[in-house]
Simulated scan of single mutants.
Amino acid sequence: MKRLLPALCAALLIASPLVQAERGLTISSGEMATPVLELFTAQGCSSCPPAERWLSALSEHPRLWHGLIPLAFHVDYWDRLGWPDPFANPGYSARQRAYARSGASRAVYTPGFILAGREWRGWFRGEALKLPSGAPVGTLTLHLDGARLRLSFRESTPAPAGLVAHVARLGFGLRSSVTRGENAGRTLEHDFVVLTLQQIDASAPHRWQTRLQADPRGERQALVAWLSTPGRPTPYQAVGAWLPGVSAGGL
């Protein structure tokens, strides 16, 4: 049995999208574009909790991170109803409006889903999530050493010019007791919440670097990075993984 253990460990490392080093971690995507599922939501929206519960269940999806990356963007345009969403950011509202301006979605609303850059209304019809087949675009690799973060991209086909990188820290197991607005009196639970979002310009062709913003919220956290073309929100390639050993007050 002991002789089989090294081989088993090696197989697990090959199968996993995350390899943890002594001082950090390295995450690499596959060559095919990884589908990103974005939920635009708000604590001030009474229709949003069911959509968020459905999104939370994706933490058990067999293709999580290496074949599906869910993100929950909390928008701020319902704060006027009397409850300021603690996870809302005007930049996330602007992201949803950018999808509408580009024709990727018909309107700005919550809960609203964007799958691989296009509006997805299957959740409202009770449809199973069908992941699109991504094109072979190239491999995105993220290196994290302490707070120092580096991204590199090896293209499979000629990539669009001026790719911009984005890095999001996600929080899980987040709870809020809402006292005003449409969800007054309810305790809401959230996963895949975008806590911080950093946009990074390239430091060299297909290379980006920055320091990762800290945010201690959440029982567990994950890290996601994606590339997009200038002025367009649609992810071109994406990569993500759990942050190992990160809990409240962690990395």
Score class of each variant (00 low, 15 high):
residue 110 T to W: 08
residue 36 V to W: 05
residue 177 S to D: 15
residue 129 L to G: 10
residue 223 L to T: 07
residue 112 G to C: 01
residue 148 R to L: 09
residue 58 L to V: 09
residue 225 A to K: 08
residue 141 T to C: 06
residue 170 L to R: 03
residue 134 G to K: 02
residue 247 S to E: 11
residue 221 Q to P: 03
residue 56 S to V: 06
residue 251 L to P: 05
residue 63 R to Y: 02
residue 201 D to I: 00
residue 92 Y to D: 04
residue 141 T to S: 15
residue 57 A to V: 02
residue 42 A to W: 11
residue 3 R to C: 01
residue 248 A to P: 00
residue 229 T to D: 01
residue 11 A to K: 02
residue 141 T to P: 10
residue 144 L to V: 10
residue 116 A to M: 01
residue 244 P to Q: 03
residue 134 G to E: 05
residue 66 H to C: 08
residue 133 S to A: 15
residue 226 W to F: 14
residue 18 L to I: 13
residue 86 P to F: 10
residue 202 A to Q: 11
residue 222 A to R: 00
residue 40 F to N: 08
residue 227 L to R: 11
residue 99 Y to L: 06
residue 248 A to T: 05
residue 226 W to N: 06
residue 188 L to S: 10
residue 35 P to W: 08
residue 78 W to H: 11
residue 226 W to S: 11
residue 91 G to S: 07
residue 105 S to W: 00
residue 93 S to K: 07
residue 227 L to S: 04
residue 197 L to S: 06
residue 191 D to A: 07
residue 209 Q to G: 09
residue 45 C to M: 13
residue 79 D to E: 06
residue 249 G to S: 12
residue 75 V to D: 12
residue 133 S to G: 15
residue 199 Q to S: 15
residue 62 P to Y: 08
residue 225 A to F: 07
residue 231 G to I: 03
residue 203 S to K: 11
residue 2 K to M: 07
residue 65 W to H: 13
residue 204 A to K: 10
residue 186 R to S: 12
residue 33 A to H: 06
residue 202 A to T: 09
residue 24 G to H: 14
residue 150 R to H: 15
residue 240 G to M: 01
residue 6 P to N: 03
residue 236 Y to F: 15
residue 88 A to K: 01
residue 156 S to F: 05
residue 242 W to C: 00
residue 3 R to S: 13
residue 180 R to Q: 14
residue 22 E to W: 07
residue 181 G to A: 08
residue 38 E to K: 04
residue 87 F to I: 01
residue 55 L to N: 03
residue 204 A to I: 08
residue 40 F to S: 10
residue 2 K to Y: 08
residue 195 L to M: 12
residue 95 R to M: 13
residue 202 A to R: 09
residue 91 G to H: 14
residue 30 G to V: 02
residue 102 S to V: 02
residue 17 P to A: 08
residue 95 R to N: 07
residue 74 H to E: 13
residue 15 A to K: 02
residue 37 L to M: 03
residue 111 P to D: 11
residue 241 A to K: 02
residue 239 V to K: 09
residue 20 Q to D: 01
residue 180 R to N: 11
residue 101 R to Y: 06
residue 142 L to G: 03
residue 201 D to W: 04
residue 182 E to D: 15
residue 89 N to T: 07
residue 221 Q to V: 00
residue 41 T to D: 08
residue 67 G to A: 13
residue 87 F to E: 01
residue 169 R to Q: 05
residue 153 F to V: 09
residue 229 T to E: 15
residue 36 V to H: 09
residue 223 L to A: 13
residue 147 A to T: 04
residue 126 G to R: 07
residue 160 P to H: 11
residue 223 L to Y: 04
residue 19 V to C: 08
residue 232 R to S: 14
residue 37 L to G: 02
residue 107 A to F: 11
residue 116 A to W: 06
residue 30 G to P: 10
residue 237 Q to P: 08
residue 33 A to V: 07
residue 213 Q to L: 13
residue 92 Y to M: 06
residue 62 P to H: 03
residue 32 M to A: 15
residue 13 L to K: 07
residue 34 T to H: 10
residue 49 P to I: 05
residue 183 N to G: 10
residue 210 T to C: 12
residue 66 H to P: 00
residue 42 A to R: 04
residue 57 A to G: 12
residue 140 L to R: 02
residue 192 F to M: 05
residue 84 P to Q: 15
residue 198 Q to I: 05
